[in-house]
Nucleic acid binder design. Structure first.
Lengths: 312, 312
DNA sequence: AGCCAGCGATCAGCTTCCATGATCGCAAAG
DNA sequence: CTTTGCGATCATGGAAGCTGATCGCTGGCT
């Protein structure tokens, strides 16, 4: 590695570049960062001297500036570097908080019922020294944000995950089932009802979440939009309404209570593609031994769940 | 983003950390970087002040130092950041060299014969303004190193690629074929010869490369190691020797000359898994329009090649 | 046992670098 | 033509960082 001028590169330079790109002018960038306009101007000057290329086009006068091609390419690298630094910072403060034995796990409503209790029991028995912090969110996307900010170590998620600095592992395929009143004619059918048949009935839905959106778009693909007469996030409420004959529900199998005699649960045999439940974590963050062990436990538990459909 | 002490972090700090980890002592790291031991000591001190954690364990006296857990975690981030900086630097110097229209492509011997000429003609017709620089290497792994150093923009490669900062695209599956003298009894068989039958004969091989290693390990898996009587990297030589009855050859189909009447080419029907030819580029580097277009052209050409096995 | 070699920490001093604040040049809008 | 907003430039003061010397420590060598 030659001793070149790149060693003089400072993080402040990259931050300044980003601020200018965001704010659209040297002055506002300076204000945002708590510097003088002069300072920013000089920072960019030295940055341009370091890379040897003009990064920002200044047309002069009150006309707005713009990034050159080199500028926008460098900006992408700068973003990546800043993201990595944030990850490093999160790792460090996690360590500082004595996190050898703390694991913050994100979950959402519908994953909870069957997997979580079993997993928690298993994991806390095999790793009693790990303190688990469960964070359940109504708003799924919030979980990913927390992963990105370093507020969570790992989260459950329905795969695939959006593009981003994530690593994932697939835990299990959770098929959708139809929940109908136990005396419904649909329950007496030998075959699984088609989507067209289902969409003729009133539907009890969950509140909007990625799983529900998925179901509704599938139902809408029949050409007829489903008639959602009620929404609740509480599975007990949903099944109660179904049992009372208010409508049908399409639920992930893992969320339904199969012991409820007032309803019948009908396998849809893949008429709606199953949701895939997985774990997601930040690809840039350090992966603690506790997190690895948790992933292993989750995989084991889900393998068991998949192997005992008899309970269904 | 709070104005925290992390903004005071300097690249030199991370470089120093890496140097210490590599060299095993402050003094040698200082020497390597052209500083005094004092400077390194102070740099690490401020770095530790910034992150708020002890990064290096100094047992005192002549005992060797070691990274703490925080230190090794931070080092991994530092490595990633340095790698990203190198990519940025490579992008900048490429741009500086006026690379809007230059594309440096790596190839190796056996990919050349069928794909390259056609691809070059096609691409230079559709993108006449792009100056192509072809770099053929005998030593395949050198190509990946050049990608990593930024000396190449994209290279052909036999997938899968080793772990690293790479992105890939699959171009085509190139099956292995058996080349025998045209009067060989093997050529008269109705079925493809088995590996056991092949390995009984003397073999003309290519010099060691990933493709040849692959073939040899497959042949050895019969329990009998192949008898390689000659090696050459020139396909004409290999086929000439086969035609003269010196031995058989197992070659990737794309490299053989099917018009050579002195030999017969026999499809192995997947008895040896085909090699997969793809393009590889650096995931951190900027991907120029020329590179994208080149990938598209390569895909198109390879789709055509796959669709006309009649020529075989 | 005692000396020595090797290592990192520390300190004072000097140099270098960088942000500041004021000023200038420029071009579009009024 | 003046005003206004923006970036460039310059001199200056202050902070940060490197140097060179010195100290304290510990394990191995004699």
């Amino acid at each position: 590695m030659e001793a070149d001028r790149w060693l003089g590169l400072d993080l402040r330079h990259l931050v300044a570049l980003k601020a200018i790109a965001d704010e659209g002018s040297f002055g506002r960038a300076a204000e945002k960062l708590g510097y003088t306009q002069s300072a920013i101007s000089q920072q960019i000057a030295t940055l341009e001297r370091i890379v040897g290329l003009r990064l920002i086009e200044r047309p002069g006068g009150p006309r707005p500036i713009s990034l050159t091609e080199a500028g926008s390419i460098l900006l992408r690298h700068a973003d990546a570097i800043q993201a990595r630094l944030l990850a490093a910072k999160a790792d460090m403060s996690a360590l500082e908080a004595g996190d050898a034995g703390r694991l913050r796990v994100g979950t959402f409503q519908s994953v909870g019922a069957k997997i979580i209790p079993r997993l928690l029991r298993r994991f806390s028995e095999s790793h009693p020294q790990v303190e688990m912090v469960l964070r359940e969110s109504q708003d799924e996307s919030e979980l990913l944000e927390m992963i990105e900010r370093g507020d969570l170590d790992v989260t459950f998620w329905t795969l695939p995950v959006a593009a981003g600095p994530y690593e994932t592992v697939e835990l299990l395929h959770d098929p959708y089932v139809l929940v109908v009143p136990s005396d419904s004619p649909l329950a007496a059918l030998e075959r699984a009802p088609t989507l067209k048949e289902i969409v003729l009935h009133p539907i009890i839905g969950f509140n909007h979440c990625s799983a529900m959106d998925h179901v509704e778009s599938q139902l809408s693909s029949t050409g007829r939009s489903p008639n959602i007469v009620f929404r609740s996030d509480n599975n007990g409420t949903v099944q109660g309404l179904v049992g009372a004959g208010v409508g049908l529900a399409v639920s992930p199998k893992l969320t339904v209570d199969e012991d409820d005699a007032s309803v019948a649960v009908i396998d849809l045999h893949g008429r709606i593609p199953p949701r895939v439940i997985g774990l997601v974590w930040h690809s840039d963050r350090h992966r603690s031994a506790a997190a690895e062990a948790f992933t292993e436990s989750a995989l084991a538990v889900c393998r068991e769940l998949a192997a005992e459909p008899a309970a269904a």
